[in-house]
Design a binder for these strands. Structure first.
Length: 501
RNA sequence: GCGCCCGUAGCUCAGGGGACAGAGCGGCGGACUUCUAAUCCGCGGGUCGGAGGUUCGAAUCCUCCCGGGCGCGCCA
């Protein structure tokens, strides 16, 4: 793992020391509560430990002074030299800054979206993609070998109704009562043959536009072929003429039907079994399922299947995200393109753009229900903070265009200004922010952080001239590092970093 | 009834044990002869749903209650 400046400073104070940025300037550049945490186990008063730690800190060249405050916080005030060093380290690491935090490099599959191809993707699928893909990007950045898969049902009741609906329109009839309707059905009916591949093709186009690229596509009918050989390996029983999996004995909330009583045909849940085996056989150290909250009832099913078959359940991970509620003027929006509601993902993207769309959908934590008022979405999107962040990136690009010559050494001509110190510290947070977002599967931390970086940069920019200033060498370096961190942050959530705006 | 998620500023939401709780939007008032004003600065705004508990310290962890969302199919 590449050592980042803050971790390095913390480690020089002891392995238990974690540094954080205090909210107030009078509390120093960094602070640690290590004395408070260790007071119990060390059987010493926190203030005493804090004094020892402060003395130790002051012996470090980077530390100008250390103060003990409150119940036992140690506040560190750093000299300019530390900021120069920190910036140099970031620039030396370049694109690797904050990367490769994984303790163990894993082969990981992220299966997401997986909407059945009975119609265009809507905004909720967009959330699945924005969330799942951002998690995948974070995992890749951490050093894992990630592959994205789309799994869909190409047989069964839903698909039959879908095909029947298209066929009906082709015959000039109305789709059946329980069928699918809408303009897209008419479009599909205009082309001969099975509408499923065409529907899937359109879905893929939407996803590519949304910058979610799938490495593999898997379908239920293929997966199901291995079901007969696997059924005997499961813990099952017969009841009411159906075959049940005794999944509740393996950590699931309930038992599940595998073969229907009516015709002994496999349920969707049954297909999960060979599908999971396929993932395990493929050697994924971690198989991630990205599911909407409406599927949370099955979150324990997958690991139960793994246990039943003797696989390590740790290899299974289910990520849940809450739903997207669409409203129009305060009322539940209908999913009708005809009415002009922005519910299909493509319409949503037409309306607000891919950058604002991805940003918006990934900015909310997965546990938060997203409320979108379709009347306000387009209007609000112009005020999306994504542009604030992109603008910082474009501003830097402008400076660097005007700067002549390659990067020199990071040198200091005069004492650092507060805005410069704040910006360096902000950039230095990046590795920890990314690590935390990755481990918690919480990509929403990245946009929140990127706003802070842009914030600090815009303030710096407003106060200080970069080119042809005494401090040009340092400030150019600061600009390069800032641009790099913003570009990486945006990339991690699938947003473009423009050179000009 | 049971399970999962949520309740933080007028609105949309960050923050998931640390020091007086943050941002954006909205409102009001300022700042461009300078590398992009899609920017910056200031003002106003909160019983962090409620009550107990754990802790030196709780918006954050635990319990209960109140409100809202979603599940509890031989649909997917």
């Amino acid at each position: 793992m590449a050592a980042d400046p803050v971790s390095a400073l913390a480690e020089s104070l002891g392995s238990e020391v974690v540094l954080e940025r205090p909210g107030e300037a009078t509390h120093g550049d960094y602070a640690t509560n290590a004395a408070l945490r260790l007071a119990g186990t060390r059987r010493k008063p926190p203030r005493e430990l804090a004094l020892e730690l402060a003395a130790q800190a002051e012996s470090l060249p980077a530390v100008e002074r250390a103060e003990v405050a409150g119940p036992g916080f140690v506040n560190l005030f750093l000299g300019d030299a530390w900021f120069v060093d920190a910036l140099s380290v970031m620039l030396d690491q370049g694109v690797a800054f904050g990367a490769d935090s994984a303790a163990e490099r894993l082969k990981i599959q992220v299966e997401m979206v997986s909407a059945n191809p009975t119609g265009p993707l809507h905004v909720a699928h967009g959330r699945n993609g924005a969330y799942g893909d951002s998690v995948a990007r974070l995992l890749e950045f951490a050093g894992h070998d990630v592959s994205r898969e789309y799994y869909y049902n190409d047989s069964g009741g839903q698909m039959e109704r879908f095909r029947a609906s298209v066929d009906a329109v082709r015959r000039g009839e109305e789709p059946p009562e329980d069928g699918y309707r809408g303009d897209y059905i008419r479009d599909l009916a205009a082309k001969p043959g099975d509408p499923v591949p065409e529907m899937l093709h359109r879905i893929e186009e939407t996803l590519e536009r949304f910058r979610v690229h799938f490495d593999t596509w898997e379908r239920q009918s293929v997966v199901e072929r291995r079901l007969p050989e696997l059924l005997p390996k499961l813990d099952t029983y017969e009841k009411d003429g159906a075959l049940w999996a005794r999944s509740s004995a393996y950590g699931d909330d309930e038992d599940r039907v595998l073969l229907r009583s009516e015709d002994r045909s496999p349920t969707y849940r049954a297909a999960d079994v060979p599908y999971l085996v396929e993932k395990m056989d493929a050697g994924f150290g971690r198989a991630i399922y990205v599911l909407g909250a409406d599927h949370h009832g099955t979150r324990n099913w997958y690991a139960a299947v793994a246990r039943m078959l003797g696989y390590d359940p740790e290899r299974i991970e289910v990520l849940l995200y809450q739903l997207v509620h669409l409203t129009k003027g305060g009322e539940q929006a209908r999913m009708s393109r005809r009415r002009g509601d922005i519910v299909f993902l493509d319409d949503f993207l037409d309306e607000i753009g891919v950058d604002a769309g991805r940003w918006y959908l990934v900015s909310r934590g997965p546990d938060q229900t997203i409320e979108i008022d379709v009347d306000l979405a387009a209007e609000r999107s112009q005020k999306n903070p994504v542009y604030y962040v992109q603008y910082a990136h474009a501003r830097i690009a402008g400076i660097l265009r005007n700067a002549e010559g390659a990067a020199g050494a990071v040198t200091l001509a005069e004492p650092l200004a507060p805005e410069e110190r704040e910006l360096v510290k902000r950039l230095a947070e990046f590795p920890e922010v990314v690590r935390d977002a990755t481990e918690r599967r919480g990509p929403q931390a990245i946009p929140a952080y990127a706003i802070r970086v842009a914030d600090d940069f815009h303030r710096f920019y407003h106060e200080h001239r970069v080119l042809e200033s005494e401090q040009e060498a340092f400030r150019l370096a600061l600009c390069r590092a800032t641009q790099s961190v913003i570009a990486r942050s945006l990339q991690l959530v699938g947003v473009d970093a423009p050179e000009r705006m």
